[in-house]
Amino acid sequence: MKVAACFCWVKDFCIPSRTDAGHAILDGVLLQLQDFEWEQKDVFAIQLSFEEAIVNAIRHGNQSNNRLGVRVHLEITPERFLARVEDEGPGFNPDSLPDPTLEDFLDRPCGRGVKLMRAFMTSVHFNPTGNAVTLEKYRSTPVPEKFLVQEAQDVQETPESPEVQDAQDAQEVQKAQEVQEAQEAAPPVQPECTAQPDQTQTEIPVH
């Protein structure tokens, strides 16, 4: 079983360097996660990490300069959240940040954003310049069945016990003989077509 391709929400934004603009995007993300029935724990993790990425881009990347924009790319399915946040600043080296969980830095009032993202996301990736971050989170609980479709390669026969298998073999031989006799008397039946899942991504309207 796999997530049906129609359940994919893709959005691109370019916002000014204002946190209220970022929060508007976050509101849409939360609604979409709710529609795809993500668990509260995962929603909290995504909300926290996405908030940090947006605020970092605005405050640190663009220095809160309203003339500079923040580009946001979002992909949400019932199984996976992906966000790419890019600012117009010079970038930075995320590996140069001190670890805020160490004793010497615990009582610092700031500097936790990147650590938070790495702690709560499945993966966090910065581009070489350091002005874009990609966050990815996979659902921690099974995807509800309503969002799944059967994959063609998932259809397999269940193995039977030897006695049942022998009986089935005998039945199949007899049935094959009957079918052959019937075919000789009547035209062949056309096999049913197997419908293929729709592979195109459909954008679900924003709430």
């Binding site: 909290f44 009582d107 610092r108 009032p109 700031c110 936790r112």
Partner: peptide, 15 residues
């Protein structure tokens, strides 16, 4: 829900 900036305020209060 609270952001890391809110955590920062709590730490300042702690100090």
């Amino acid at each position: 829900f609270l952001s890391s900036a809110a955590l920062g305020k709590l730490i300042m209060l702690y100090k």
